[in-house]
Nucleic acid binder design. Sequence first.
DNA 1: TAATATGATTATGT
DNA 2: ACATAATCATATTA
Length: 377
Amino acid sequence: MAATQRSAPSPPAPRRPGRPDTSDVLQQIMAVTDQSLDEAQARKHALNCHRMKPALFSVLCEIKEKTVVSICGIQDEDPPDAQLLRLDNMLLAEGVCRPEKRGRGGAVAGAGTATPGGCPNDNSIEHSDYRAKLSQIRQIYHSELEKYEQACREFTTHVTNLLQEQSRMRPVSPKEIERMVSAIHGKFSAIQMQLKQSTCEAVMTLRSRLLDARRKRRNFSKQATEVLNEYFYSHLNNPYPSEEAKEELARKGGITVSQVSNWFGNKRIRYKKNMGKFQEEATIYMGKTAADTTEVGVPGNHASCLSTPSSGSSGPFPLPSAGEAFLTLRTLTSLQPPPGGGCLQSQTQGSWQRSTPRPAIVSPAGDPGSINSSVSD
DNA sequence: TAATATGATTATGT
DNA sequence: ACATAATCATATTA
């Protein structure tokens, strides 16, 4: 820094007029090794006090810098930067890293449980346990982090002092000290990353244990299943509620739209897989809806061909009477015929259960007699 | 306690 | 984005 006018280190130092030449000083330094210790101490002191010492020191520093940089400057670290960022974000999102404040509104609710069918109904009852454990983890995390940081600070000041001490007898530039400090920080941040990683793991485990909705499954209320089943069986030939219908069902049953979707997905597949098992339920609900006007609002959707029998019976199936309904239903569901001469153009009509799986239960040809045998699988 | 029912998730296809 | 099929994990029942 100080020696600015120097163009090249190798040639003999350009002697400036009026200044004592540095080669003398160098000579003296070289001679130090030949001296006895006491003598050397004295000489060292004298050299330290020499008025050319700072300039010489900086020259030496620069020379060293040149050689060191070519060796150490290659390895620019920070490949795990992205990972560190991910960990930080996650800890932030989970509320582990939050700056000790109350404001925990958006972070957890927004980023954490973005899954559509996440944890809809019971949010705060089951989660108190989770919160307690989480705060425990947070506490440990912060205390460990604090420990690491303190150790890092102490070590850094120690090394800095040491280097400054040594800079009296060997060329140690401020830049070098800086590099050393950043190297120390790098090592400590590697340790911190391990801490963050294990904290993340702990949080994830906790999440999956206490927060995963699957583990705390609650059956729907009677009301909800009622509403859902009514819709399902009254739209048995097209059990695909529109978005509006889903919302309506969700509202009526006190569940979320995603839950309605889940329910219909499960219901369709399970009904199709083993229709025999659902016959009893079917008759119940089909009889129910025959008298009950549970019109789940279907303002302007596929009603084009479904609403045909609306005048006589509310359901999409021709249900003359409760007694007949059973047989009619069976023949319809097991043989899947198009309902009379109605609207055939819609493929959804009854084709949602096409590709009949390979249920040995569904007898090859409709044998309406053995109803119960098929049920008792 | 084993078997079954059930809500949710995941993989895959359209 | 939604549907299906398979699967997971819990709840309920026999």
